[in-house]
Design a protein around this nucleic acid. Structure first.
Lengths: 195, 195
DNA sequence: GTCTATACATCGATAGAC
DNA sequence: GTCTATCGATGTATAGAC
């Protein structure tokens, strides 16, 4: 039937707009996207965008979902080692590499750089699934308390932020990831054995 | 002489404007300050602000310097223990408490939330002095390599960012500060003894 | 030094023709 | 579904009177 084709074209158009939005974000920052420039980038006039997104907020929400989907697919494509600790390290490395690839994507997904923006519950669900899987892997590696999970998350996030802020494109901070994870996981084990 | 009085009043006025700007930033975010609202907050009309600041950028620069001065004075008021490790922990705690007090101040001082803003060399000098003192204390505590200093900085920054993003006003992340510092400093010592 | 008035730009969003 | 035209709000900065 034709209805399917129409919906397909529409989805493709939406996807191309989101792609163009990522490119603009890379240039001007995530908050620096203007609907005028975005429309021009996909060969339209600015008001025509409202055929695909009800508001700028809706665009950001679509980008948020898209970014998380990118990360999810990246993770899906990785084969994780059986060894729980190695799996944790590979998971965190996959995340960190993904994050450092695109600062603007980071701004939207992991920082709070868009003033009034809160992702919709549907879009946030994917983000929670990704974080939840990290929690599961950490659990299997012996990190069971929320406090310890929080610490690992903070450490990885700290490396990410420092790397992006002070040495974008380099590895001055990110190169310490494996060692830091090992250090923390060793400590968790020591603590659990010692008492 | 009268010239001194005039300069004094002017400085006081500048200070009151900066104070009002911090209050607005706390409400609307650091990037959400409007010169119109700022002028009204200090009983003026918007164009009159240009008597005190050449541009909005200049206002941000003054705020950046002011924020760092606040932190510097806070640190100056603290008496640090002789024990180097205890001193490091107190320094980081002083920093973290200061940071968590005011998210908007954090946005300007430690994050990159104002699109086109780069602090002037003069304003940045204070920030470097504060970071340098952290480096000195870490050095005295046995953390001598840049990589290790970077790691401690990243860990503290990670705790700060996670705390502000996910539990503002609480201590879910910040409570781990001392333990994380101890963990890392122990590791530095172990590594230096072991080889 | 403060004001009124205004220039000038940008942006998100809507109305309505085609 | 895309366009032109425009609204309405916001925001920085400047000109010039007082």
């Amino acid at each position: 039937m034709t209805a399917g084709r129409v919906a397909e074209r529409r989805e493709a158009k939406v996807a191309s707009i989101v792609d163009a939005a990522w490119k603009l974000a890379a240039e001007h920052g995530i908050a620096g996207i203007s609907l005028y420039a975005l429309a021009r980038a996909v060969g339209m006039r600015q008001p025509s965008l409202y055929e695909y997104f009800d508001s700028k907020h809706a665009l950001y929400d679509a980008m948020f979902a898209d970014g998380n989907r990118q990360l999810f697919e990246r993770i899906e494509a990785v084969s994780f080692p059986r060894d729980p600790r190695a799996a944790v390290k590979k998971y965190m490395r996959t995340f960190l590499d993904f994050a450092l690839e695109d600062p603007a994507r980071c701004e939207l997904l992991f920082e709070r750089h868009v003033p009034g923006f809160t992702p919709s519950p549907e879009s946030y669900a994917l983000a929670e699934e990704i974080l939840g899987r990290a929690g599961t892997l950490l659990h299997e590696a012996g990190v069971t308390s929320q406090g310890d999970i929080d610490c690992v998350v903070a450490m990885v996030g700290g490396l990410m932020a420092a790397q992006l802020s002070n040495d974008p494109g380099g590895n001055r901070w990110s190169r310490h990831l494996n060692r830091l994870v090992d250090l923390y996981l060793d400590d968790v084990i020591t603590r659990s054995n010692g008492r």
